[in-house]
Design a protein around this nucleic acid. Structure first.
Length: 423
DNA sequence: TCTGGGGTCCTAGGACCC
DNA sequence: TCTGGGGTCCTAGGACCC
């Protein structure tokens, strides 16, 4: 049997590229997309990187650069990015036998059946060109015998324009590349692990590849050991192409303005509970553990309050009103009126399959199915109607908790009245 | 003045049991 | 001086990813 081959397809500066697809004037210009609340830089064009805008850097710290150099700055437009991501994934799915959609902007492909390396190169270029043609999205393709090496291949492509967006590490001398790769940039090695490795003399990907298994297992964990094997070309991390149900669902936000009242905070939490419950139902799960958390401004180190509270739900549920009742009780437990709050959220975990759960006879089956039906109808209505969403009273009616988003582009692909117009 | 959000997995340590 | 020795299950927290 032939060895497996993986390709990592990664959209270049994804959020920025989404903006550029609908506004070609942005090409070759410095462009930055901000996180929620117009907080930090989360995507930068190469031109913006060159000007010194760091990933994750708060807007106010480089605003002067933006003004000086005319950097185009956007609030994040997740509706647009989500839809563009979907288009890229669909295109890849059509041209590849097995695909794993790994994140909003990257996918692994598993390739086999190529007997010669030149054919593999051709396929890599075909993938790159097809995505560009069908979606307008520029991508980089890295091909290698394992996922970790495919990640490294992609890393190499992005730094060398000569490669024109594609590299195939199969067949060549991989060590020659690995000796120039910093351990800290290997997929699965974060800052903490990198520090330990460097302290012990393993500074490059090649060093780590040759590190003794026993040492790695003892000083680090099995995850890093897997990474070492993958560097050696032994595939340990398989493609995950099953439709993934989440094992936990988090909805949380920082507020544009701090919230100083119980009611305000309860409305925010309730809105997040409602969102989380909708996600839960869309993957046909029921939840057994509900947790909420609240934080004051974490940058005020002298006066900081953060707390969380959780409750085990028995029987499991996907009913919003049940969750809202508990959320209110939990919040009363941890709310401290000596503080104003900057951020809050809800986390659902420990799921069961909605169709498989057996209720005992303490549950009113009739009422239960009526509630399920109600939730399904609310979800359907809210999905169809972008306006006039049905909400629970506990969520409130105000827009106060909405994040700041003053620089957002139009939702070109999902709203009829925001379509691109051409003069 | 302004500082994101959503995930997964592993390990350590405590509680409990025999 | 010296405290049994495993198991399992659960949770909190850390580390990593994008």
């Amino acid at each position: 049997m032939k060895n497996k081959i993986f390709a990592l397809v990664d959209c270049n500066n994804f959020f920025v590229s989404c903006e550029r697809v609908f506004d070609p004037k942005l090409r070759k210009k410095p462009v930055v997309v901000l996180s929620n609340n117009d907080g930090c830089a989360v995507a930068r064009s190469n031109e913006a990187k060159a000007l010194g805008v760091e990933m994750g850097s708060p807007y106010f710290k480089w605003q002067h650069l933006a003004q000086k150099h005319g950097i185009k700055v956007f609030s994040s437009n997740y509706v647009l990015y989500g839809d563009m991501s979907h288009r890229v994934m669909r295109t890849l799915d059509n041209i590849s036998p097995r695909m794993e959609s790994y994140s909003i902007d990257e996918a692994f492909l598993e390739i086999d059946g190529f007997d010669d390396n030149e054919r593999l190169n051709e396929y890599g270029r075909f993938v790159r060109d097809t995505v560009q043609r069908d979606t307008g999205m520029p991508v980089s393709v890295g091909i290698a015998p394992t996922k970790t090496l495919a990640k490294i291949a992609n890393h190499i492509v992005k730094r060398d324009p000569q490669l024109k967006g594609m590299i195939n590490l199969c067949g060549g001398d991989i060590d020659d590349y690995l000796k120039d790769i910093d351990v800290a940039s290997i997929w699965g090695i974060g800052p903490k692990r990198a520090e330990i490795l460097k302290r012990n003399g393993y500074s490059t990907a090649l060093d780590l590849k040759n590190a003794p298994d026993r040492w790695v297992k003892k000083k680090l964990t099995v995850c890093e050991l897997r990474t070492v094997w993958e560097l050696r070309g032994i595939s340990c991390i398989p493609l995950e192409d099953v439709y993934g149900r989440k094992q936990s669902i988090v909805v949380s936000r920082s507020f544009g303005e701090e919230i100083g009242s119980y009611d305000g905070l309860c409305q925010a939490i309730s809105t997040y509970v409602s969102k989380a419950a909708e996600k839960l139902r869309s993957q046909m799960s029921q939840v057994q553990y509900l947790q909420i958390f609240i934080n004051s401004n974490r940058f005020n180190k002298e006066r900081y309050y953060s707390n969380s509270a959780g409750i085990r739900l028995d029987p499991p549920t996907s009913d919003t009103s049940t969750m809202l009742r508990w959320a209110d009780l939990l919040l009363k437990h941890i709310y401290n009126d000596a503080f104003s709050y900057k951020r809050a959220g809800v986390m659902l975990s420990d799921f069961v399959d909605a169709s498989h759960f057996q209720y005992d006879n303490t549950v009113d089956a009739n009422l239960h199915s009526k509630r399920e039906c109600l939730m399904a109808n609310i979800d359907l209505y809210n999905k169809k109607n972008n306006f006039g969403k049905i909400r629970f009273a506990q969520e409130g009616t105000g827009n106060k908790i909405h994040s700041k988003q003053t620089l957002r582009s139009a939702r070109f692909t999902t709203k009829w009245d925001e379509l691109l117009t051409i003069k």
